[in-house]
């Protein structure tokens, strides 16, 4: 089977400081990869390199495009990459306001990606928006409200709906549950798990919350100081960590 994403030797430096380096992995269709590690370990840097928000200093990111098979997204033209960003890719930001248009209604936020790929029937666009609000448990009568009137958890669910409405094949998420209350987090995780399964999504989720990866990720990558220090099936890594740092990470969380 062709991997959906083939990452080779990605490196990104901020001057002399390492953002991340020597990162290679394959992601297969339907697979969810978790990236964990302490603050400053390079998780966001890596994710942004993969999603085309940052240009890495070295390495390649091959994505299995619908039309032409594996293509290096780093060297492809900007219009092609931006087209991927609003069709086959989705990016869920930690802060919903970075991923939403706060001055546009919930329906407009969900509809934007459809209109960006030339949906031109208002009734259909609105129908999709209602459907997707329902799928992220936002009631239909909030469709014309702006996200500023929503709670943090609702904003995050709206961001997810806005991203998934075009049926992307790969979702990047950076701390999707960060900054939310524990009970709100649990509901969001449940929802995400349901959607991932239902849509057979491939995803890369960055988090420092091991509960999130336990629930969502098939495989895990542990990062420290910009390097990947351990990879494996999620249960394997969490239940039988090999690297001393991972052991520390797992035990410290379990003690909390």
């Amino acid at each position: 089977m062709t991997p959906l994403l083939q990452v080779e030797n990605i490196a990104k430096f901020y001057g002399a400081r390492i953002g991340c380096t020597d990162v290679s992995f394959d992601l297969y269709p339907g697979e969810v990869m978790g990236i964990v590690g302490e603050s400053g370990s390079g998780k966001s840097t890596l994710l942004n390199c993969l999603a085309g928000h940052l240009t890495p200093d070295d390495g390649s990111v091959q994505f299995d495009t619908r039309a032409e098979g594996l293509r290096d997204t780093i060297t492809m033209s900007e219009p092609e990459r931006r087209m991927l960003s609003r069709t086959d890719w989705a990016f869920v930001h930690q802060h919903a306001r970075d991923g939403l248009r706060m001055n546009v209604s919930a329906g407009g936020n969900v509809g934007e990606r459809l209109m960006a790929i030339n949906a031109r029937h208002y009734g259909d666009i609105r129908g999709s928006a209602i459907d997707w609000l329902g799928r992220v448990e936002i009631s239909e009568d909030r469709i014309d409200d702006r996200p500023t009137a929503f709670s943090g958890g609702m904003q995050q669910r709206l961001q997810i709906a806005r991203n998934l409405v075009t049926g992307p094949r790969l979702v990047f998420m950076d701390e999707p549950t960060g900054g939310l209350d524990v009970s709100v987090q649990a509901r969001l995780l449940d929802l995400l798990r349901g959607l991932v399964r239902e849509m057979n999504l491939s995803a890369i989720i960055v988090t420092h919350d091991l509960a999130v990866v336990r629930l969502l990720a098939d495989r895990l990558m542990v990062m420290k100081d910009g390097h990947v220090i351990e990879t494996g099936l999620t249960d394997q890594v969490l239940d039988d960590p090999q690297h001393a740092y991972t052991q520390l990470l797992v035990s410290s969380v379990l003690q909390v």
């Binding site: 900007e78 219009p79 931006r82 329906g107 509809g111 934007e112 666009i125 609105r126």
Partner: peptide, 18 residues
């Protein structure tokens, strides 16, 4: 430059919804 005009229709969408 990239002919990304979806946003223009978001404005019209907002008009109709309001």
């Amino acid at each position: 430059s990239l002919e990304e005009y979806g946003l223009m229709h978001v404005k019209l969408y907002e008009d109709i919804s309001q």
